[in-house]
Simulated assay, not measured.
Amino acid sequence: MSHRRPLLKGDISFSNPAVRAWLYQIIAVIIVAGIAIYLIHNTVTNLSNRGITSGFAFLDRSAGFGIVQHLIDYEQGDTYGRVFVVGLLNTLLVSALCIVFASFIGFFLGLARLSDNWLLRKLSTFYIETFRNIPPLLQIFFWYFAVLRNLPGPRQAVNAFDLLFLSNRGLYIPSPQIGEGILAFIAAIAAALIISAGLFRYNKMHQIKTGQLRRTWPFALCLLILLPIAAQWVFGAALHWDVPALRGFNFRGGMVLIPELAALTLALSVYTSAFIAEIIRAGIQSVPYGQHEAARSLGIPNPVTLRQVIIPQAMRVIIPPLTSQYLNIVKNSSLAAAIGYPDMVSLFAGTVLNQTGQAIETIAITMSVYLIISLTISLLMNIYNRRIALIER
């Protein structure tokens, strides 16, 4: 028979489980802190022995290299800090494009997978099962080396109305230049949107009171078209267009979408859309079939049933996994370094790191940027998810 000493309220001996728990945690914190201090000291010592100074002063030094695509003005003599901004904007550009295209394609494929049309259903199934099982890097290589790099040269470029030119150098399109009527143009669009929102609210209240449906979109569409046109007619053109033209061995003027951007956008959009399609399909199938039958018994057309009844209920199932796919797009955009697209990884964690030797700083900045972008997307999606969530009372 064991005799255990009863625990007292003020007992601070080792036999007290609470004391042991606190002691183990303190020891664990000390060990982790010791390892961190050792690693930091070792890193600082190695950097000092190699003559590498730490800190972020290198951001003010001149980069001395060109960047093929930049959304802001950039020259070779600009600083590494500006290189960081250029890389960040290029990363945000390809991520935004892929999110939009993958969402649109995935939504269509998800609906097609549930279609009564046998051919459409089988084609969507083939698309999904094919592209989601091929690694994204291989798809990037396919679009870049097998498709886009085999386009004709600038002199034999595909010409569309002398405005768009497609070659192995990229897609050249007219570039917008701000005109004197830009402020009036923006004000006209804002006024059209405000009036349309007010009219939509008024028609909604009228429908609730009388049961009569009034369509808002024809009037809103006319406002969005006519008001900006009237503003430009009175105050001048809001935009002027710089049209590209062939001069020498390449095009000059306009705006170019380089093949690296196109290949990366195509590959990530196609790859991620296959996963989004399955998320859409699962979300729609999660809605009880009784909802379909109830809408059909009321004589509601199938498109209206899908838009007004099924999709709103399915969104609470769709949003969480859809957020993960958006985060995957941002992270997979770092594969751009494989084909030379000037994103954050290629520029900052690649070229800048090799030139400056500031490995810790450049890697830390790059990791922090991806972390902030991912947390921002998660925050926005979670806010939207809370707004559409069904509240049980």
Rank of each mutant, 00 (worst) to 15 (best):
G34M: 05
I37G: 10
A192I: 07
P176E: 10
I360L: 13
I35V: 14
H41S: 15
R387E: 09
I173W: 09
N117R: 12
P218S: 02
G64K: 08
R61S: 13
F58Y: 02
I383E: 10
P17H: 03
T210W: 05
N302K: 15
L120W: 11
N382C: 02
I140A: 00
R214M: 12
I134F: 01
L306P: 11
V304D: 14
T125F: 06
S15D: 15
A337Q: 12
T351W: 02
I186N: 11
L193A: 10
F14Y: 11
S324M: 11
F131W: 10
Y127V: 08
N117L: 09
L347K: 01
L347R: 00
S346Y: 13
T45I: 09
Q325R: 11
L163D: 09
Q313T: 01
N16T: 05
E75G: 10
D162C: 02
R20N: 05
G34P: 03
I279G: 05
Q313G: 00
A21P: 07
Y127L: 04
L298F: 12
L138V: 10
L8P: 04
S333R: 00
N90K: 03
G248V: 05
R50H: 08
A57V: 10
S334H: 02
G77V: 12
I105Y: 00
A238L: 02
G357M: 01
V94S: 00
A57C: 09
A294P: 04
S175Q: 15
F200M: 14
L246R: 03
L88V: 15
K204Q: 15
L97M: 06
T366K: 02
Y370E: 14
T130E: 05
F58H: 00
S269T: 09
I186M: 11
L371E: 10
M315F: 02
R4H: 11
